[in-house]
Design a protein around this nucleic acid. Structure first.
Lengths: 121, 121
DNA sequence: TCAGTGTTTAGATAAACGTCGAAACAAGGT
DNA sequence: ACCTTGTTTCGACGTTTATCTAAACACTGA
């Protein structure tokens, strides 16, 4: 049996996300790069199937990839597509243990997104 | 001079968003409705132009609509489109005062999105 | 009422996205 | 070696989205 980490294409310890406040002035917005980076993270969450996947992962230490398809009501191919997007965003990680791949959420990354939305203070 | 609230098409005091944790089991995801509602909120943030608009709004009590176009580098029409999406999501609100429309962020709504991402304690 | 400025809507177009079936790849068991 | 099961990639299709120009709408001040 092999144990190999599946993704993430984006490292789990990616650089901190920019925050929305304290980043610019009322008449000039944040940089293109920062805005794209943040928007990309939100895009990773901007689909009901991916929200559902995350909801399953947040109620267990880990979830077998084989359970997502039934859980979200999509084909295995579609499920795999969404898992890849979540991996690429650095939100989840999976490791193969024999036949199955087990996924976990990366809490620090989710917290970083939350922090990007935190208002003044 | 008239003072009329522009939007939001979604009320500022919308019902609380569902949260990702404590909503379901490891093998069954959250409901279609909850997932769509949450995904819709994230979709509202899933574009660099809208992130930039928000970044401007979070650095001022209010911002004149006339400033967004230059701030995000898009035409007035495109800017108006993005503002509408943010209004529909209940994230911002604007009121016309004479010639200009001034926009404000709705902090409670932003906080609700952040809370939806909060992990179990 | 008219001209000027700010804002939104309508229509069009190109790119991005979600979805599926089918095929390919990976691992384990016989 | 083969077959079975789990997972990903490929190719295609229809929908949604972002963007623009042009036209319409809203308001102010002369």
């Amino acid at each position: 049996m092999s144990t190999a980490t599946i993704g993430p294409e984006a490292p789990a310890t990616a650089r901190p996300l920019p925050v929305l406040n304290d980043c610019c002035t009322p008449t000039s917005a944040m940089s293109d790069d920062d805005a794209s980076l943040l928007a990309g993270m939100f895009k990773a969450l901007a689909d009901p199937a991916r929200v559902k996947i995350l909801s399953m992962l947040l109620n267990a230490a880990e979830v077998c990839a084989c359970d997502f398809s039934a859980g979200i009501g999509k084909t295995a191919a579609t499920t795999s597509h969404h898992l890849k997007l979540l991996r690429d965003a650095g939100l989840v990680t999976g490791d193969r243990r024999g036949t199955w791949i087990y996924y976990r959420v990366i809490p620090q990354r989710l917290a970083a997104i939350r922090d990007a939305l935190t208002l003044g203070q």
